[in-house]
Amino acid sequence: MSVLIVIPARFASTRYPGKPLVDLKGANGVAKSLIRRSWEAGQSVQGVARVVVATDDHRIKSAAETFGAEVVMTSPDCQNGTERCAEALDALGGDYDIVVNLQGDAPLTPAWFIEDLVKGLRDNPVTDVATPVLRADGRALNGFLADRRAGRVGGTTAVFGAQRNALYFSKEVIPFTDQTYEEDAPTPVFHHVGVYAYRPDALRSYPQWDAGPLEKLEGLEQLRFLERGTPMLCVEVEARGRQFWELNNPQDVPRIEAMMREMGLD
């Protein structure tokens, strides 16, 4: 099955304008832009036919082309990354069986997260959309709670049913727990990893639907599928000793750089 990875990136982020071009320093002290690190993460995935950056901004296009990325220009009217991926797919054409949306704010995404996600979708032929979830340890859960206490929007959490289909995603910490966990202890909270795998027909249907009230309230694009009754498979992935965090706010830059130093990632 042919797999296309699309990395949607826009300059005019509400919470963090210019985010794709923000530099992150690795363990060796070398700075690379967020969009470059995201593209390199996509390039490391096995079994992928093509990796492209999809953007509406020529500054991002120019920056991406300097490090060799293929870029697809998309409309500034795209409301979110899923709509941008759908537009990129139409522009590229080609016979892809699965399209992966590797959002451009998750440079710490390991290759096996995406490989396991693609396998999960392949192994469930009646499922059209899938996304990874990672069980939060105490350190990650404490980070979520600290962000919320500070009024920051941090990571997204997910809850799912017995068949692993998503019940809900939220920027609040769900499910509720009042226990205290050691930093390396498993918790009942699952961190939603901002990556999606779609079958092309499901992806093409998405922009035809209006955003529902939950999507608007949470600002989470994946809720459009749930509000329309489209099941979304949650594929549990394993950290294997890696830390994971998305770049949502300027305060996340030093947090991610510290994680990269700790893990020895250049």
Rank of each mutant, 00 (worst) to 15 (best):
G29S: 08
S44L: 10
R148W: 03
Y196C: 10
L24Y: 05
G154T: 10
N165T: 14
A140H: 03
E182D: 13
G143V: 02
Y168L: 11
L89N: 04
Y206T: 00
E182L: 15
K25M: 08
A88D: 02
A136S: 15
G219E: 10
A106Q: 11
A158F: 05
D97T: 07
V71S: 10
T156K: 00
N249A: 13
E183C: 00
A197S: 08
S205D: 14
A49W: 01
G18A: 06
R164W: 04
V118D: 01
A146G: 14
A54T: 09
G143D: 09
V52N: 05
F169T: 01
C234V: 09
E257V: 11
A202N: 09
A86P: 02
M260E: 09
C234N: 12
R122F: 09
E215W: 03
L34N: 06
L203E: 09
E262I: 02
E218T: 08
D128Q: 01
L141R: 03
D184P: 02
G194C: 12
R242N: 07
N28D: 15
K32L: 13
D252R: 05
S75R: 11
T157L: 07
V72N: 00
T82G: 08
L214H: 13
L34G: 02
A146L: 15
K19L: 15
A166V: 15
Y196K: 07
G18C: 05
Y206H: 10
N80A: 07
R84Q: 15
D128T: 01
Y196F: 15
S170K: 02
R135C: 03
G94R: 08
M232I: 15
G219V: 09
D137Y: 00
G29Y: 08
S205G: 12
F176E: 10
Q222E: 06
L265T: 04
P231V: 00
R204A: 12
F113S: 06
D137T: 02
P188A: 04
E246P: 03
D105V: 00
V3A: 04
L24Q: 03
A41H: 11
T14K: 13
A86M: 05
R84D: 07
W112C: 12
A239S: 15
L89C: 07
M259T: 00
P200D: 11
M73H: 10
T14S: 12
P250N: 09
I7K: 03
P8E: 11
A140W: 00
G161S: 13
D178Q: 13
K171S: 14
V193K: 03
D123Y: 02
N142K: 12
T14G: 12
I114A: 04
V53H: 01
K171P: 00
P20Y: 07
L4T: 11
M263L: 10
A162C: 07
N80Q: 08
A49S: 15
R152P: 01
M263S: 06
H58N: 05
S33N: 03
E115M: 14
L121I: 02
P76V: 10
D201P: 01
N124C: 11
V118G: 03
V48F: 10
V129C: 01
E65M: 13
N165L: 14
T55F: 05
V129I: 12
T14R: 14
W39Y: 15
V126K: 13
E182H: 11
A258W: 03
G154K: 07
I60D: 06
V118F: 04
V153H: 13
P20L: 08
L121C: 05
A106P: 00
